[in-house]
């Protein structure tokens, strides 16, 4: 049944002898254990570059809402990448059901973690912007922020679920199904909150112009590095946890067979 305990080769089939953390990543390629630090440094550089663009390059303030719009350079890329991450959870869930591989479950969980961080940043920046715009830290009348909050709850529940199930294969299956259902719920949540939530639409802020576009693109790139860094971190740590659990199980079986 459980091939990670039954055979010395772990589920991902990577070479163990070289001592690297196994598991090549679909997004970044190569051996993740080695290029993690460069990835982190690039992330820092990209975030710094984005901040510099926000301060020096982007126009200071737009018509309706003034300078507080600058937080959108954090908010908008995070919101876009949150959608990407949650779509990856959905796709990886389908792969789990098709291939029955625990490997895809780790990918799904790593994507969910990256999505949850992005979602958290969306909520925090949205809340801070709300304080500047309406003098309220939280406003259920803003449909987009409320939608993000409900989505956050849905994916938080994903982690409660995955922590609650001990058996590896079972957890993979159940979380895969939940990840699929979670994405299916997105459109209903969006429309329900917009139509039947607490009410008024906030002004749509026009964000155009070459400088704003540049800064948004830089933000998209910087946050892509950040969330893919988190993805790799979560993936590698989960891989390690499963490997050490498998090794411990082998130790126990060996002890049983000797006694």
């Amino acid at each position: 049944m459980n091939n990670s305990t039954a055979s010395p080769t772990p589920t991902n089939g990577a070479d163990l002898a070289d001592g690297s953390v196994p598991g090549a990543l679909p997004l970044t390629g190569g051996s993740p254990g080695r290029l993690f630090l460069p990835h982190a440094l690039i992330t820092v550089a990209a975030l710094a570059f984005m901040n510099w663009l926000i301060i020096e390059h982007a126009p200071f303030g737009v018509k309706q809402i003034g300078a507080s719009y600058l937080i959108a350079f954090y908010h908008v890329p995070s919101a876009i990448l949150m959608g990407v991450a949650y779509t990856l959870v959905f796709a990886a869930g389908i792969m789990v059901l098709l291939t029955k591989s625990v490997e895809w479950d780790r990918r799904a969980r790593a994507a969910a973690a990256a999505g949850l961080l992005a979602n958290g940043i969306v909520l925090v920046t949205g809340s801070v912007w709300g304080k500047a715009a309406w003098n309220l830290w939280w406003n259920f009348q803003d449909p987009r922020l409320t939608t993000s909050a409900v989505i956050f709850l849905i994916y938080l529940a994903y982690f409660v679920l995955s922590r609650g199930i001990e058996d590896e294969a079972k957890r993979a299956r159940i979380c895969a199904i939940y990840g699929i259902l979670a994405l299916l719920a997105y459109m209903p949540v969006k429309y329900a909150v917009e139509w039947f939530g607490q009410g008024s639409h906030p002004p749509k802020v026009a964000m155009d112009g070459a400088q704003i576009r540049d800064t948004l693109n830089a933000g998209l790139l910087a946050f892509f590095f950040l969330y893919s860094l988190l993805y790799r971190w979560k993936y590698d740590l989960d891989t390690l946890r499963e490997r050490s659990d498998a090794a411990l199980a082998r130790v126990r079986r060996l002890e049983d067979s000797r006694s």
């Binding site: 163990l16 002898a17 254990g33 860094l229 971190w233 740590l237 390690l240 050490s244």
Partner: peptide, 20 residues
């Protein structure tokens, strides 16, 4: 992230030795 990942990489070496 970097600090914990580094520690994980060194733990992974131990686990690999254990596996061998």
């Amino acid at each position: 992230l970097v600090v914990t990942h580094n520690r994980a990489a060194s733990v992974a070496n131990d686990v690999a030795a254990l596996e061998r």
